[in-house]
Design a protein around this nucleic acid. Structure first.
Lengths: 245, 245
DNA sequence: TTAATTTAACAGCCATTTTTGTTAAAAGTG
DNA sequence: CACTTTTAACAAAAATGGCTGTTAAATTAA
């Protein structure tokens, strides 16, 4: 439904109810949820896409999707983690996919600011879970801000896994300042830095540079990425790993 | 069922199955659970109450229960919080009861290390939620340790609400060192300190002193507490509030 | 004021999880 | 060895939580 609204720019409640075959009440409820996430704004009779966030919500979609790619990437990343060691995960769905594979690597220490990953790992015995606190952001379901950066700076892990929303020839990018600050802090806190991105992120840019690609010890991409982009990335960097699907 | 066993001192499996109208298998399963909790001991054909632990299990039980008391206390505590201000909550079920009332006080900033409270408040719009990170403890479902203490020390709130497992004439107590450290840090971080305890905690002690009762700006107890203990507390401290049930 | 829209409360439905009972095999007791 | 008790595995039943639609009341715009 959000996709529909973002494409159209706006929509009326009754129109949405009809085109999705649900009641007006349900539309209202779902819109309230989307509004809470900051994705749309409700006005009397309908909704408008939160203009400034068209990008972001587009990305939010991308994050939801590509689950097969992310899972393939996650498997490769998990293979790079030593049982008994420590990993830091950022608040990306790719990192979440990695978290799903961590149970097999126990005992393991996991550090993250992503509430969804915390929920997942809180149930695992033999996983020592350290949460990075900070201000809760509903849009990302994670903890950010100064508090989080401070918390990151108080720890160090063997491996750090981050994902960014865009990757060019030279840099990894993200559009939100707040998140960039946390990711950068995370990269400083890890001995080995892994960038995990699916093919849809390649050859794109976003507002803020997170870090040069050469700062990463490994860049993991799925094999379903466009082969020309993959090749280009491999030509320029010696640290690229391709996850077979 | 546990109550029945504790009263009788012991019981047979078939007897329990009949008197509760369930199958023998179900009795076995429930007894296994009680045994895991250290409340009873299984012997061939039946169970015996774990004498040394009757007290302790009673207390564990009481912590789960007393929801009505905790809710009454929570209502009073919530009334002491100004909308627009900030509150810190510890990882107690009493604090969780307070959290349930905070939605009405929005806008509000809430700081906590209790995952259950975080889950609850993450859904509330108009609540600015700040999580205190740290090492996750499944036994308390909260974040503790050095990381948490550091995080607490980086913030200050208008009000701090803590609950402890025991309260004597002079002090508030808790049996776990790790938790004591966090609670003490929290008390240092708040302008107004509220101790919220239900009547079952009165006139008891535990291993570690958390703080003298006079350090608190308010002590909130439910009216169902034994009246002699209540009176004694009020005689010695001018900051006692009784929550009517 | 009127009509449309939004909200709140309730009840039903679906999927998931938890609890329960049955059965059969295993273990323990005398 | 014969008998009782306990355990494991599976299927049925019950409970739970999430989502939906209906209705009626509240709110808002014209």
């Amino acid at each position: 439904m959000a996709e529909h609204i973002v494409r159209q720019g706006s929509a009326s409640v009754t129109e949405l109810a009809e085109s999705f075959g649900v009641s007006v009440m349900t539309v209202h409820r779902d819109l309230d949820e989307l509004e809470r996430q900051g994705m749309v704004r409700k006005v009397r009779g309908g909704v408008t896409a939160q203009a400034s966030n068209v990008w972001e919500s587009n990305i939010a979609y991308r994050l939801q999707a590509h689950t097969a790619e992310k899972d393939a990437i996650a498997r490769v990343v998990a293979g790079m983690i030593e049982p008994g060691g420590s990993v830091m995960l950022d608040d990306s769905t790719t990192a979440l996919a990695v978290a799903r594979h961590l149970g097999d690597l126990a005992p393991l220490t996991v550090v993250t600011n992503f509430l969804e990953a915390i929920r997942l790992l809180a149930g695992s015995p033999d996983i020592r879970l350290i949460a990075l606190g900070g201000e809760y952001r509903a849009t990302h379901d994670s903890f950010l801000g100064l508090g989080c950066v401070d918390a990151v700076e108080a720890v160090s892990t063997d491996v750090v896994v981050v994902s960014t929303s865009a990757v060019s020839d030279q840099y990894a990018f993200h559009q939100e300042q707040e998140i960039v600050l946390v990711k950068r802090a995370m990269l400083r806190a890890g001995a080995r830095r892994i960038l995990a991105v699916d093919g849809s992120k390649l050859a794109r840019v976003a507002l803020h540079r997170v870090a040069p690609l050469d700062d990463f010890d490994a860049i993991v991409v799925d094999s379903a990425a466009p082969s020309d982009l993959l090749q280009r990335l491999r030509d320029r960097h010696g640290n690229v790993q391709v996850a077979e699907m």
